[in-house]
Simulated assay, not measured.
Amino acid sequence: MIRTTLLVGASALLLVACQQKDEVATAADPGASNAAVNAAQDATSAAVGATSAATLGQVSTEAFVTNAAISDLYEIQAGQIAQAKGQAAGVKAFGKMMVADHTALAAAMNPLVATAGVTPPTGLDERRKGLIDNLNAAAPADFDKVYLAQQTAAHDEALALMRGYSENGDNAALKDAAAKAAPKIQAHLTHVSELSAGSGR
């Protein structure tokens, strides 16, 4: 009950942040205002994702598959944007690695998902669409910071999802796949921390 309440509350905050974006765009300095609203929206998205990964995705195979698939789709799209818009060479290279690694993770998971009888989503949810919108809207000077902040939250969420399902899930093959994916995601998270500390170099 508490977990459901947290998830609903965090979702409501995300909706408020989305609604405020249009209102703030009419302010005297729409560029700066939108950047602040986008940052708040990304932070709220991180809270929603962390709650979801730590609850539903850990025990429900359908929720796990949905979250894992959308996570990979988001990482691939965000990585493509980072290759095009990233300012630092390290950010561009990380974006390229995300496309390759998350394409491989999805490919490895797909046969197991099919065997489990679950159909994964083929597109992003509204929350991840918002993150992609904010990446596309980021000014060149701000892009690397926005991307790396999103990546920290996204990999924290993915790591919680993989570790949680590997311990609590009800499908043995997917539990094993989640356990194998966790170290790769941890490595990504470590890399993001290093890039953030070095300003993306």
Results as ranks from 00 to 15, higher is better:
A46I: 06
A46Q: 08
A46D: 10
A47V: 15
A47L: 14
V48G: 01
G49M: 09
G49R: 12
G49S: 12
T51G: 10
A54I: 01
A54T: 06
A54M: 12
T55H: 13
T55N: 12
L56E: 11
V59I: 07
V59N: 04
T61Q: 01
T61F: 01
E62T: 13
A63G: 03
F64D: 02
F64M: 08
T66F: 05
N67P: 00
N67F: 00
A68H: 09
A69Q: 05
I70Q: 14
S71D: 01
S71G: 13
S71T: 14
D72C: 09
D72H: 07
I76Y: 00
A78I: 10
A78F: 11
Q80R: 14
I81T: 13
A82W: 03
A82Q: 02
A82H: 05
Q83Y: 04
K85E: 02
K85M: 03
Q87V: 14
A88H: 06
A88S: 08
A89V: 06
A89P: 00
A89C: 01
V91F: 02
A93T: 05
A93V: 04
A93S: 08
A100H: 01
H102G: 04
A104Q: 13
A104Y: 00
A106E: 07
A107Y: 04
A107T: 14
A107V: 04
A108D: 08
M109I: 03
M109A: 14
P111W: 13
P111N: 10
V113E: 02
A114C: 00
G117F: 09
V118T: 09
V118L: 10
P120A: 13
P121C: 11
L124P: 00
L124C: 03
D125K: 12
D125I: 12
E126P: 12
E126M: 14
E126R: 14
E126W: 13
R127M: 14
R127W: 07
K129L: 13
I132C: 09
I132L: 15
N134R: 14
N136I: 05
N136F: 02
A137M: 07
A137P: 04
A139V: 10
A139S: 15
P140M: 09
P140H: 10
D142M: 01
D142Y: 00
D144Y: 08
V146K: 07
Y147I: 00
Y147L: 03
A149F: 08
A149H: 05
Q150I: 04
Q150W: 01
Q151K: 06
T152V: 04
T152K: 11
A153I: 01
A154S: 15
D156S: 09
E157H: 02
A158Y: 09
L161I: 09
M162A: 12
R163Y: 01
R163S: 06
Y165C: 02
E167M: 14
E167K: 15
E167P: 02
N168P: 03
G169P: 01
D170M: 03
A172D: 07
A173M: 07
L174E: 05
L174K: 10
L174P: 07
K175W: 04
A177H: 12
A178M: 04
A179L: 01
A182I: 03
K184Y: 00
I185N: 05
